[in-house]
């Protein structure tokens, strides 16, 4: 298995989920994207060659339908931290997925994730860091 030959399940087909799905699919990975709203899949590019599963990813049956239990990587990228945490927890604990990544907006929730072995990416903390760095920089003359 190479870096571009993985089976990746992405939960949430919003801006982030769709972008990741398009890129990962284009690179040759097997991709399944889950979203509760069918129209969300319109954000996928015509070149996207993965699967679409319509359903609520907090339901175990939906994750199973997407074969998240067979995934090499699960990415929880909905706009709801609680959904992402729940999906990530199921993927890690119930399915034993090797790599689980979750987006969390609330920095305080990151600690909970780490305890579960879930990697997190916090857009709030990341952009705050960038802002602070920019503020600390000397203004251009």
């Amino acid at each position: 298995m190479t870096a571009s030959d993985r089976f990746i399940v992405i939960v949430g087909c919003g801006r982030l989920g769709a972008y990741l799905a398009n890129r990962l699919s284009r690179d040759g990975n097997g991709v399944v994207v889950i979203d509760a709203e069918e129209q969300a899949f319109a954000a996928l590019s015509p070149e996207y060659s993965g699967f679409r599963v319509e359903g609520d990813a907090t339901e175990l049956a939906v994750l199973r339908e997407a074969k998240a239990d067979k995934a090499d990587v699960v990415v929880a990228a909905t706009r709801d931290d609680n959904v992402n945490l729940m999906v990530a927890q199921v993927a890690k604990v119930e399915f034993g997925v090797a790599r689980v990544l979750a987006r969390v907006f609330e920095p305080r929730r990151e600690a909970v994730c780490r305890k579960l072995g879930v990697e997190t990416i916090c857009p709030t903390a990341m952009s705050a860091e960038l802002f602070l760095k920019a503020i600390a920089r000397e203004p251009a003359p």
């Binding site: 298995m1 097997g30 399944v32 997407a66 067979k70």
Partner: peptide, 8 residues
């Protein structure tokens, strides 16, 4: 059954 993983 769809969807399937490449390895499957």
């Amino acid at each position: 059954q769809k969807p399937f993983a490449p390895k499957e």
